[in-house]
């Protein structure tokens, strides 16, 4: 799967973390782009990994179930809050 004499697919794994986070050095980024242009399998992996991140990042935020919220407030009330004035 060596499509570019200067860059084989093993470079992808080394650079992928920073690449996905947009933290890759400009020169390395240019080289990786050149590799991805010619290497279909690597391009599929990058695109589908990006899609994976997107799926999870768009998940609805976890809601606190009302009964969990109520029990938390009760715990805090009994364990840390001073008793209410009569």
């Amino acid at each position: 799967m060596h499509h570019d004499p200067g860059h084989d697919c093993s470079h992808l794994k080394e650079a992928l973390a920073d690449y996905l986070d947009g933290d890759l050095d400009t020169e390395l980024c240019r080289e990786l782009h050149a590799h991805l242009k010619d290497c279909h399998p690597c391009r599929v992996v990058v695109d589908s990994t990006r899609q994976t991140i997107r799926f999870f990042s768009q998940e609805r935020p976890v809601q606190l179930p009302p009964e969990v919220q109520r029990r938390l407030q009760e715990t805090l009330k009994t364990r840390i809050l001073p008793p209410e004035e009569p």
Binding site: C9, L12, K13, V44, V45, S48, Q51, Q58
Partner: peptide
């Protein structure tokens, strides 16, 4: 070590519809 799939296929379909 993570092994890159030998012949990964592009993801298609409409991702929006999946949500």
């Amino acid at each position: 070590d993570w092994e890159k799939p030998a012949d990964p296929r592009p993801w298609t379909g409409d991702p929006e519809a999946w949500f």
